[in-house]
Write a protein that binds this DNA or RNA. Structure first.
Length: 487
DNA sequence: ACTTCGACCTGCGAGC
DNA sequence: TGCTCGCAGGTCGAAG
């Protein structure tokens, strides 16, 4: 069954159930499973007390008295459970530890892949090959940015098998690799040494956070099975790509694809996770929010730090300026009435026309949409060429306009519903009814928050909002761009 | 020293 | 129904 969060769940459950239990005798039904050979294994364990249970990567370490450690790996399907002695042995029970309180600790494993090694405490890191070269645990203290940068720069292989290799990082398996790559928008076949620093940082944050969340959710339960040590995992309910082939991506709605990478089933979003020849160093942060949530306030903070901001509304105006292809198409489609005497677009006339007719609005969007996209891509290409580290794409309808897939990360500016309503009424001098109409015309703010990587809470003071932006800049590795260090 | 690929096992569901 | 095939949360060792 397990990756790190599941093994940790087992460790905690077993600690509760059999911590301090004493073993009277051991039965081994599948001898290949244990080392040293079965008779010796049984003899060594008889009379021993389980003093504690540790974990390293996906290995369980049972610590007994007299400096004895049993290293146990569950591989694909190994499970421990505790039951009263005398219960009939099932087909797939391979090792039974009889306890002195009339209970059994049983190990079952349909595929017989699991292994148990008994050795002197301390020898496990010298004698068990998997433990010998185990990489750091995915925690903030042990998995450092410096370490990641260093190992990433040295490997040309695809990132997916690289992350599955326990000697690089401990504990990740097929599920959490797919999940964290999706969270970080990295294609599973992207060569590891081509991944830019900002993505290494994102990946690190996502790995650490995802593993932590999964442990808190008691791990992921794939095949339906419930554990005898208390809880069945519930983290499968939080999976973003694993097992979701054909279902819409939670960020951009594109169907999730399933392929094979390094002989393992691999799930990813073809639009969010694009294989890049030269990924470049530029990170694009999508900035969005709801009407009157204060997105422009946040946008101004970035501008104040000289961080380039591409304003989607401004681009939308540029593509219909006099002399543009966009304006010409609007004239052809909607008539000369849409053009004012001075040659500029009559926004009021166009607005009135499309406001009441959804099909006209769709027609307008099909003209301007591609032009905006092209203009944004052109601007981004310029920043990429100049190796600008961070660019903000400020777009009120980022999700609605299907712009999410092109972003490296998405920041949503959020306020409580009531605050949004009050601010909109005050700002635009609207009645409650009018304000609600405008709010309800957009994708619900809660839905945007759900799709966000970072949420900025703008319900308090400007200073508090700014502090959140500054914190994000620091955590994302852009601390050097902050010019007013006093904050 | 690198990466790739079969082997280790059993059960289950899809497709014929 | 019965058969074959492919697939499953992992790792190791042989072969290229």
């Amino acid at each position: 069954m397990p990756e790190l969060p599941e093994v940790e769940t087992v460790r905690r459950g077993l600690t509760r159930l059999v911590g301090n239990a004493k073993i009277t005798s051991v039965d081994v039904y599948y001898e290949k499973m244990v080392s040293p050979e079965a008779d010796q294994f049984k003899k060594m364990l008889a009379g021993k007390t389980i003093e504690r249970i540790d974990r390293r990567g996906k290995y369980l370490l049972f610590r007994f008295n007299d400096d004895l450690t049993m290293v146990s790996h569950l591989r694909m399907e190994g499970k421990y459970d505790v039951q009263p002695d005398g219960n009939p042995i099932t087909k797939h029970t391979h090792v039974v530890f009889h306890l002195d309180d009339h209970r059994d600790l049983r190990y079952t494993d349909t595929r017989k892949f699991g292994r148990m090694h008994l050795l002197k405490t301390g020898d496990e890191t010298k004698l068990v090959s998997g433990l010998k070269k185990m990489g750091p645990e995915p925690t903030p203290e042990t998995l450092t940015v410096e370490y990641m940068k260093q190992i990433f720069s040295k490997s040309k292989k695809a990132i997916k098998p690289f992350l599955l290799d326990q000697s690089n990082i401990a504990g990740l398996g097929n599920i959490y690799v797919d999940e964290t790559l999706w969270l970080s928008r990295i294609h599973p076949e992207q060569p590891t040494n081509t991944i830019p620093e900002f993505q290494i940082r994102q990946l690190r944050e996502n790995i650490i956070a995802e593993i932590k969340r999964a442990i808190e959710g008691h791990g992921t339960t794939v095949h339906s099975f419930s554990t005898a040590y208390g809880e069945a995992g519930e983290f499968q309910n939080h999976l973003m790509v694993y097992g979701r082939k054909g279902e819409p991506c939670f960020r951009c709605d594109t169907p999730i694809e399933k392929t094979k990478v390094a002989q393992r089933g691999t799930h990813f979003c073809p639009d969010c996770q694009v294989l890049r020849k030269d990924p470049g160093v530029t990170m694009v942060l999508g900035l969005t929010g709801g009407i009157a949530t204060g997105k422009s306030t946040v946008s101004e903070f970035f501008k104040a730090y000289q961080i380039p901001v591409i304003d989607a509304d401004k681009v939308a105006r540029e593509v219909v300026e006099p002399g543009t292809k966009g304006l010409k198409e609007i004239q052809t489609t909607f008539g000369w009435q849409m053009i004012q005497p001075d040659g500029t677009l009559d926004r009021h006339a166009l607005g009135t026309l499309v406001f009441s007719q959804p099909e006209k609005l769709a027609q307008l969007n099909s003209i301007t949409g591609p032009l905006i996209k092209k203009a944004v891509v052109r601007k981004l290409r310029g920043y990429r060429r100049r190796q600008v580290p961070l660019v903000i794409y400020d777009a009120p309808t980022l999700f609605e306009a299907h712009g999410a897939a092109g972003m490296n990360e998405i920041m949503v500016v959020n306020v409580p519903d009531q605050v949004q309503l009050q601010r909109l009424m005050a700002r635009d001098h609207l009645s409650k009814k009018e304000a609600l109409e405008r709010i309800n015309a957009q994708m619900p703010l809660a839905e945007k928050v759900k799709r966000a990587d970072v949420v900025i809470d703008n319900s308090d003071s400007v200073d508090k909002t700014k502090a959140q932006v500054v914190r994000w800049l620091n955590e994302a590795g852009f601390g050097s761009l902050i010019t007013d260090k006093s904050n």
